[in-house]
Amino acid sequence: MRVMVMVKATPESEAGQMPSMELIAAMGKYNEELVKAGIMQGGDGLKPSSAGVRVRFSGKDRTVVDGPFAETKELIAGYWLWQVQSMDEAIEWVKRCPNPMVSDSEIEIRPFFEPADFGEAFTPELQEQEKRLRQQIDGQTR
């Protein structure tokens, strides 16, 4: 199962406070463990919401709203993409994570939809399209 593991923002991360050298080293070691275990597929830290925007949709209208955004507890400061056997395995890995913030913090784990979740609506044609797109994405270099 694929999951997104989200590090929730804190007042410090929203203020742009960078992690200490010790925390960067600890997180690097943790990421190495994830890679060696074959779990980590990607991940990064995110800049504060003051560097971001939101696009709101209302029918055909689009409105761009500049950050920062008020509800720090609802914001994400970083993420990982993992391939795990179960939610329990993901939880065990998160429990091993160094506290990613200076103060108390929270990490959320959310599973991705799998093709079977869509039932008959995910036709063989749409499955083939999805497969082609994923292959194209995998073949891109940055």
Rank of each mutant, 00 (worst) to 15 (best):
R134N: 12
M40R: 00
K36H: 04
W80S: 02
M87C: 05
C97T: 12
S50K: 09
F113H: 12
W82S: 08
G59H: 02
D66N: 13
K8I: 10
T72Q: 11
I107P: 09
Q41M: 04
G52S: 06
V65E: 13
M1Q: 09
P115Q: 03
T10R: 03
F122N: 13
V84H: 02
E22K: 11
A90E: 00
G139F: 14
R110Y: 14
Q17M: 15
A90Y: 03
F113T: 10
I24M: 14
G28D: 13
R96I: 00
E92F: 01
M1L: 11
Q83M: 08
I39Y: 01
G42P: 01
W93A: 07
E32V: 00
V84L: 06
G28A: 14
R134M: 15
P111E: 13
M101D: 10
A121M: 15
N31M: 02
Q41P: 08
Y30M: 15
E12Y: 07
Q127A: 14
V94Y: 14
P111R: 15
Q127W: 04
Q41S: 01
E108L: 06
P11H: 03
I137C: 05
R62K: 13
F69Y: 05
D88F: 01
E92A: 08
T10G: 09
E92Y: 02
T10S: 08
A15Y: 09
V102G: 10
Q135D: 13
E106V: 05
W93H: 04
G139W: 08
G59K: 05
P11A: 00
G59E: 00
G42R: 10
M1N: 05
A77S: 10
I39W: 00
A25P: 11
G52R: 07
S86H: 12
A25C: 07
Q129M: 15
D61E: 14
L23H: 04
G59D: 03
M40N: 02
E106S: 14
R62D: 13
R110C: 01
V5F: 03
L46D: 11
C97Y: 02
D104Q: 07
W93Y: 07
D104H: 08
E22I: 10
R62M: 08
V5E: 02
G119V: 06
